[in-house]
Each structure stands twice: as C-alpha cells, then as structure tokens.
Write a protein that binds this DNA or RNA. Structure first.
Lengths: 242, 242
DNA sequence: TTTTGAAATTTGATGCAACAAAAAAATTAG
DNA sequence: CTAATTTTTTTGTTGCATCAAATTTCAAAA
C-alpha cells in the first residue's frame, strides 16, 4: 500500500536545521487569506470564487484552490451553495459556541503559559499594553485590535502547546469577519484594559488561576459587547454549515 | 476585489431542502484517508506520496492532493521533510498536550450534551455499551474501539456544538495512529466500562458535572495506559511540527 | 411591466503535463 | 570495500485545458 516507515536515524548534527518549509504559493495564499479573515478585512457574505482569488493573489487557480479548501476545512470560509464560497456570518448561536470553546481553550493556554513565561516576555506584554492604551487615546482602532491580538497570542504561545494555539487561531479566524463594520465602536471600549492588567499581575505572581480568570473575563466582556452589537445589526445571521 | 454580499432573500418554501453537498472526489478522498487515520489503520511513520495515495484511492493527483493538504492542516499528517509526508508518531509531550485539550473540550461537550440528550439516545448509548462488553468478552477488539468511538461521539454530538465536535474529531485523528500495533493490549482493558456506566447514570440524572467527570476519568485512564505503553515501545517519537 | 425560458457565461472539479528539486541508484575513483 | 560523483527516477508544485453544472443575461411573450 503505502511506503513503510524508515528506521529513525538519529540526528547526528545536534538538530542543526529545523528547516521550516513554509514556502509555496499555496501556503502563502492560505496565509494571506487567513490573515485577511482574522483581521476582519473581509465582510461577511463576501463571495469568493476560485478565479477571483487567484487573480487578486496573482497566482493560478491551483494555489488559490489550496487556500480556499483549507480555509473551508477550518471554518474560516463556508460553502453557502453548490458553487458558492462565502465569508461566514456570525450568528448568535455561533458566537455562543465559539465563546464557550474559547473560554476552555484560551483559559487552558493562559494557565499553562503562567509557568513558562519569562520576565522579558512579561515586559514585552507590558509594551503591547502600552500600544493598546496609546491606540485607544489616539483613536487608531485597527492598531488596538492588532496589539490586542498580539497580546493574547504572545501569552498563548508560551503555553508551549502548539496545536492548542493553532486551534485557538481557528477560533479567532471565525470571529474576525464579525468585527468588520463594527469599527470603531467595538475597539473603543476600555473594558479590556483592566483585564489585561490583571493578567499581567497574575503572570508576574505565577498564579495560573488568576491569569485564567483574567483571560476568561476578557473573553466574556468581549462576548457581551459583540453579542449586543450583533443583535442590533440585525438578522443577517446565516447558517453555519461547515 | 471580491463580490459583495447579496441581499438575503427569505425562504418562501419553508426551508425545504437543506441540501448537503458532500460529493466530490477530493471530499471523499479526504474522508477516506481521515477514517483510516482515526481507526489506527495506518502505522506511524508511513510515508504518503501524492501519486501513491492517488493510485490507492483510484483518483488523480488533484483530489489526493486536496486530501493530504487538508489532513496536514489539521495535524493528521505531518511534513517530515522537503518532500515527505508521513503519519505522525505520537510522542509523550504530544500525548500530554492532546490529553489536556481533550479534557477541556470533551468535558465541555459532555456537559452540554447532558441537557440535550433524549431518553432514546440514552438507550442507544446503552446498546453501544452492550456491544463494547460483548466485544470485550469475545475478543473482537476492533469492534470495541469502534463502539467506544461511537459511544463518545454520540454524546458529543448531542452538545449541539458542531465546531466543537469537529475539533474533537481532529484530536482523535491525532491519537488514532498511536493505537496501531498496540492492539489488542490496549483495547483489552475494562477500566473504561465503569466510566461509561457513570456517564450513563449522569446522563439519566441530568447531572452535567457527573457526566463531565465520568468522561474526564475515561480520558485520564486511557491516557495512563497509552502513555505507559508508549514509553514501553520506545523512543520512536518524532517531532510534531505542524 | 413582469414573466418565462433559452442562450451565453462563469464556476468548481478534475486530470494532466511540464518543471525543478530531491532522492535513489548506479558508477567510478580511491 | 568505501566514498565520492554522476545518472536516473521519483516527487511536489504549478499552470492550464476540459467538462458539466450553475448562474446570469437577455429577449420574446404575456
């Protein structure tokens, strides 16, 4: 059938080159699209066709197809019909589900990170928080959102759990488009600030439960604002068949 | 750039046809490969080439490529080199991470399911448990594993959280290959039985915490057996770069 | 104006060939 | 026999043509 596994020849060179091979048109097309989605650069309902994506990304249909297929697989795009791929709407039930999962997973990641994070990294987090505050003051809300994302993922990555981070990313991917059209109302809130400060303190004190609690509060407060705005915007919520 | 979203024309025919279009060579190639992986039909380290997969599945390289790409995306296969895709080994750290995530997510799913499951479904679960017991008695361990999987996922699906179930599936996908070569030792244990009974009782009593506890115990006891056997088998654990 | 239906267009799926990179095999040099 | 080097084969990537299905366009009929 398939090739049998080879004998594991041990690394004799001390694990010299961890060679990341993240280069291929398909890979970067995927990364680019994914980034657009997470950033909320694409409006829910936007229809993506193979050829239009290929054209925008300046590649042939093959890499474009790769990207779209993978994104559908993780729910970042959905099949809304026979030959129709769109950026998904986030319905309230969808938001509820994603929030529940986020609380579990980001809580876990935050907890785990507490024991691995270094002082230098905590300092880096403080810098990010500075950037958030400044962005809030100066009305640069895109910056706020970006820095907020960096803040969270810097913590999550310190969990040392790679797959966990990947899964969390796929959840943010699902939330991204919902922010579209919600600027700047959403980013204006300063409710997140105190949660971040609590998280920083917990990190510094090596108190996993405190960090988890802070992150959970942050997620919950985001949920409240987002769900009320979603309800206000109206009933455009589509099905979320994956 | 891309097409703007269309106005949502309401369904006038009472939501007649929820038409699921799960047909395409790429889709079924993916499903087939994924199933093999989950069932533990493929040995860790097995090398998959585009053309060999295409040949076995009797399709061209395009659908085979689709399937492989998607599976790599969710960690069911990994890139172990420039032109090498293999079924991943499960290292102890990997198992630790996956178990931690499973406890969070399957616990959540079990909890949620408690409020949605019907009496009929509980009865169905009891039948599955029968099948497990019978398989254990008669030494049909593949059957045991299959029924066990059905038991768990029947519960998880009742959570009503589709994406959650998908994520959990991707975790089982990662565990599957590790069972290969571990039959029948692994399936022989009856430690899972009492956990399942506790879960059933909790479901019947509508006690979410009890159901979660039972599922968590089940996962933990599986972890113990699997980790000790993994350690026994030796140091074949490969990197888990996704 | 609205409706209907047929023609033209666009779309995703699929297979395939060309290509460069990598791996494997064969050959030669020491 | 071993090691180095060349040749051959295999591999993933990419672009593209084809096809059937779905969508859109458009004009004729009501």
């Amino acid at each position: 059938m398939f090739a049998a596994p080879k004998k594991g020849k041990e690394a004799l060179l001390g694990d010299l080159a961890p060679i990341d091979r993240h280069s291929s048109l398909g890979e970067s097309a995927y990364a680019t699209l994914k980034d657009s989605l997470i950033r909320g650069a694409m409006q829910p309902g936007t229809k993506l066709t193979l050829r239009s994506v290929a054209q925008v990304l300046e590649v042939s249909t093959t890499p474009a197809r790769d990207a779209i297929t993978r994104l559908i697989g993780e729910g970042g795009l959905i099949n809304a019909g026979p030959k129709t791929v769109i950026v998904p709407y986030l319905s309230l039930p969808d938001l509820d589900e994603i929030t529940a999962i986020r609380l579990s997973l980001e809580g876990l990641a935050a907890e785990q990170a507490t024991n691995h994070v270094t002082e230098a990294e905590i300092h880096e987090l403080e810098n990010l928080q500075e950037r958030i505050n400044r962005g809030l003051d100066e009305g640069r809300y895109t910056d706020v959102l970006d820095a907020n994302k960096d803040f969270h993922f810097l913590i999550y990555r310190r969990s040392g759990m790679r797959r966990l981070v990947t899964i969390i990313e796929s959840l943010w991917l699902r939330m991204g488009p919902a922010f579209n059209g919600l600027y700047p109302e959403f980013a204006q809130s300063r409710t997140g600030v105190s949660n971040h400060l609590w998280a920083l303190r917990g990190l510094h004190d090596r108190d996993p439960a405190a960090v988890r609690g802070a992150i959970e509060n942050d997620i919950r407060s985001g949920y409240r604002r987002l769900s009320s705005q979603l309800a206000a915007v109206g009933e455009q919520g589509g099905e979320s068949r994956s």
